[in-house]
Design a protein around this nucleic acid. Structure first.
Lengths: 356, 356
DNA sequence: GCACCGCCTGCAAACGCTTACATTGGTGTC
DNA sequence: GACACCAATGTAAGCGTTTGCAGGCGGTGC
């Protein structure tokens, strides 16, 4: 103890609660209570304590406070991806909401590397048990039974974002609803040859999002009396590049669709660029609709089903904070995430080709 | 104390060091030393302790450990932006390096909102003094003298990324070098009418990056005997949209440049799209070079000066960890960040128009 | 045979808070 | 005027580690 101060020779020894107590001529207990906003402190005393704290520049040590109270006021955010705008937006939304609630956010990024399994193991073996955080937000993370059990053992609240996790509060997007909305938008414009650019399961293993979207797309078509054409369905890797390539192939084939529904905005943008490169006009020759609410959507005039990633992050944080509040109901509510069709210039009534 | 356990009725009471000590039949001191890898523990004892810890699933409490040792093994990362791919990449790089070093990362996002000043104030008044972290990484954050003083008072290491901060270890990009490299690339291809899409200072206030790049661009031109033409210089907001608009105007004017150097890849991509929309071919009618190493650069065949954001994050983290190591030199080394010209398909020898 | 020296280990004191429980006056009631 | 009660504060016991210091013990040198 006191060693670092000696070693380093500096450490200006930030004020402790004792010093504040001395200055305000009360006990440390009262200082703690006053600064925590507890009701059982007289107005006069509180004022005196606050003044003392201010003049000393006192801020309670998070570590000492955590150790004593058992609460860290820190939330762990576990994300398997980070590079994309989408996850950055989710992070942003969650961070803001947590900061507003007086919580810090510690990030744990589970990346797709060769050491993925090792890191993931370490996450569950160490990070989660280290008591550095009060609770977790797990984004797009499908958990194994063993992992779920470990979490249950910890007894710490956890909110999942992106897909139902058994026994855990989850916020999820109604993938079928989203895909139906997009498909019906195209149908309502009069399109019948509607292609689908789905996601490759290999790139979004969790929760089978691509499959759900594809199924809803097919069902919406059938409901409108259109039999899905397997030749109009392609999978890509969720990127602009992938959408571009897939669309190039699709539009090169003899039976060209008049509309295309992509499972992500990035693929949709790729599709728009591919169409342009083939000399096709969007939306006259090809209507395109995506999913996500990508920041570039506006620039490309892309019609999309926005899923408000920033809001997702915020909702996850708010839900978690509710669960952490003392009067929490205790049961796990699974909320649905909002989504909304944003119509821009990439979709229109089919034209340019003879209608049969 | 013990309250939460009672209140909530759960909390499986994770194993404490005492339990490990009992099981291994040693004192808690020895357990601590054995698990920390201290040399003064016999091999036999160490083995016994490790076995006990393993069987109990013991992981030391971060808060207790921090309080006792004064070290948190947690780093604060302060970022003014978060939404863009660039900062997400920096974050990713830093996180990985910190995780490898056994450190956690707590994020502090200083966003551009109306409450910006308030949050920033709070950052310096509370977050930094709360002792939740051992040190900081400040990304693209220009600090006021008052803030610098506060940091100095804390005595905690800090590494800045993105611009020289007086008295602080900083990693910065040689903006002049980058702009010179890009400009000279175009000059070496034979271009003489080279436009510049600079950044608007309003959108990147810190460190005057746009001004430095522009100055270096002009100097490179002069060095090659070309007088910079003010009509060929425009500012935009670093986005695709902004680059698109500015380029549209620029190429609509009578004296059209044969090449364009944009201060960011996103503006460069906007420029490429604008050129296409005007019926110009890239690179035949217009060569375009950007700066950054954007993930979309490959797709658009964009020649760029890559500044490796992931590496920047990693370097910042590694530099900080070095400073935290006990045998740190103590002086502040300011390193330069790497950059590299990546030639793709958007630049070529000028052609298509009569050379004079 | 003795003094010393190292190597391991244990003891116990922090670390800086929070909070259960005790204490102290002051008010209100009958 | 005695009693009960309540509000405000103090006392002190933790919270779960780390680490300075001391001590035991076996070996070594002379």
């Amino acid at each position: 103890m006191q060693v670092r101060a000696a070693q380093r020779g500096k450490e200006p020894a930030l004020a402790t609660i004792q010093q504040v107590a001395d200055l305000a001529r009360v006990s440390t207990a009262t200082v703690s209570r006053a600064l925590a906003g507890k009701p059982s402190v007289s107005a006069a005393t509180r004022e005196r304590v606050e003044e003392a704290a201010r003049s000393l520049g006192y801020v309670a040590s998070a570590t000492a406070s955590s150790l004593a109270s058992g609460r860290t006021r820190n939330i762990g955010m576990v994300m398997p991806y980070l590079g994309s705008w989408f996850y950055a937006a989710v992070l942003k939304g969650a961070h803001r909401a947590l900061a507003d609630g007086g919580y810090d956010l510690t990030l744990y990024h589970l990346e797709d590397t060769t050491r993925h399994a090792e890191r993931r193991q370490r996450l569950f073996d160490e990070f989660l048990r280290r008591k550095r955080v009060d609770a977790f937000i797990a984004v797009s993370l499908e958990l194994s039974d063993a992992e779920l059990e470990r979490i249950a053992l910890l007894g710490k609240p956890i909110v999942g974002l992106g897909g139902p996790i058994p026994g855990v509060t989850t916020l999820s997007l109604d993938d079928a609803g989203v895909a139906t909305l997009a498909t019906e938008h195209l149908l309502s414009l009069g399109h019948r040859e509607i292609a689908h650019l789905g996601g490759d399961e290999a790139f979004e293993q969790d929760f089978h999002v691509p499959a759900k979207r594809r199924a809803a797309y097919e069902q919406a078509l059938r409901a409108a009396g259109v039999e899905p054409d397997p030749r109009l369905i392609k999978n890509a890797d969720f990127t602009i590049q992938g959408g571009y390539q897939a669309t190039l192939q699709m539009l090169g084939a003899p039976q060209r669709p008049t509309a295309l529904f992509a499972a992500s905005d990035e693929m949709a943008i790729g599709a728009i660029l591919a169409a342009r490169d083939l000399g096709l006009r969007v939306p006259e020759d090809l209507s395109v609709v995506g999913i996500d609410g990508h920041e570039l959507g506006e620039f490309f005039g892309l019609t999309t089903v926005d899923q408000f990633p920033v809001v997702q992050g915020r909702m996850a944080a708010e839900t978690l904070l509710e669960e952490l509040s003392p009067d929490a109901p205790g049961d796990h509510v699974n909320r649905d995430l909002p989504y909304e069709l944003v119509v821009r210039k990439s979709t229109a009534v089919p034209s340019g080709r003879p209608r049969e």
